[in-house]
Simulated scan of single mutants.
Amino acid sequence: MTRPLDSLVIFIARVALSVLFLWSGAMKLLGYAGFVGYLHAKGVPFVQVGAPIAVAVEVLGGLALVLGVRIRALGLVMAVYTIVTAIFGHDFWNVTDAALQRDMVIHFWKNVAIAGGFLLLFVTGAGRISVDGARAPRLGLSG
């Protein structure tokens, strides 16, 4: 059980994490052909399967974060997804231009930090301000 302030902070964290994924997913969807081309250029395997999965994870995952639906499981899924995108999308070890490599290093570790936030959601759950919180049984004093 979480205190009301804890639930508010968890809600703010969920919304903050969701903004990045909702925006990114929408941009991928709106520029889908360019996104697929980017994945091909990065050498990502199974692009025809991976591209729609990426869009779905970002858009549906972002919505689930805001609503607080199945947050513990979602936290694990999003943590893994964020690490996978760091490896394929921010592969600084393959970049020779020093300025671009520095940028990629920053983005790689940013993704690792975001994955850490998702792991915290896995541990804390969604809090009371969520669909998960509304479903949770309440301890009452009746009886």
Rank of each mutant, 00 (worst) to 15 (best):
residue 2 T to P: 13
residue 3 R to E: 14
residue 7 S to A: 12
residue 7 S to E: 11
residue 10 I to N: 01
residue 10 I to S: 03
residue 11 F to I: 01
residue 12 I to L: 15
residue 13 A to N: 11
residue 14 R to I: 00
residue 17 L to S: 01
residue 18 S to H: 12
residue 20 L to V: 15
residue 21 F to Q: 10
residue 22 L to D: 06
residue 23 W to C: 08
residue 24 S to R: 07
residue 25 G to F: 02
residue 30 L to T: 12
residue 31 G to Y: 04
residue 32 Y to M: 09
residue 33 A to N: 10
residue 34 G to L: 03
residue 34 G to R: 02
residue 34 G to M: 01
residue 39 L to M: 15
residue 42 K to N: 14
residue 43 G to R: 13
residue 44 V to K: 09
residue 45 P to V: 08
residue 46 F to Y: 13
residue 49 V to I: 15
residue 51 A to H: 07
residue 51 A to Y: 05
residue 57 V to R: 04
residue 57 V to Y: 00
residue 57 V to L: 14
residue 57 V to E: 02
residue 59 V to C: 10
residue 62 G to H: 14
residue 63 L to R: 03
residue 64 A to T: 10
residue 64 A to G: 12
residue 68 G to T: 02
residue 70 R to K: 10
residue 71 I to D: 01
residue 72 R to W: 07
residue 73 A to L: 14
residue 74 L to K: 11
residue 75 G to E: 13
residue 75 G to K: 14
residue 76 L to M: 14
residue 76 L to E: 09
residue 76 L to N: 12
residue 80 V to T: 12
residue 84 V to Y: 04
residue 84 V to I: 15
residue 85 T to K: 02
residue 86 A to E: 02
residue 87 I to N: 05
residue 88 F to S: 12
residue 89 G to W: 00
residue 92 F to L: 07
residue 95 V to D: 09
residue 95 V to N: 05
residue 100 L to Y: 05
residue 101 Q to F: 05
residue 103 D to L: 07
residue 104 M to I: 00
residue 105 V to Q: 13
residue 106 I to T: 09
residue 107 H to S: 12
residue 109 W to M: 13
residue 111 N to Y: 02
residue 112 V to H: 01
residue 113 A to W: 02
residue 113 A to S: 15
residue 113 A to K: 08
residue 119 L to M: 11
residue 119 L to I: 13
residue 119 L to Q: 06
residue 119 L to A: 04
residue 121 L to E: 04
residue 125 G to F: 00
residue 128 R to T: 06
residue 128 R to S: 11
residue 129 I to W: 09
residue 129 I to Q: 01
residue 131 V to F: 06
residue 131 V to N: 01
residue 132 D to H: 02
residue 134 A to D: 04
residue 134 A to H: 04
residue 134 A to S: 09
residue 135 R to I: 11
residue 138 R to D: 03
residue 138 R to E: 03
residue 139 L to E: 13
residue 139 L to H: 11
residue 139 L to V: 12
residue 143 G to Q: 04
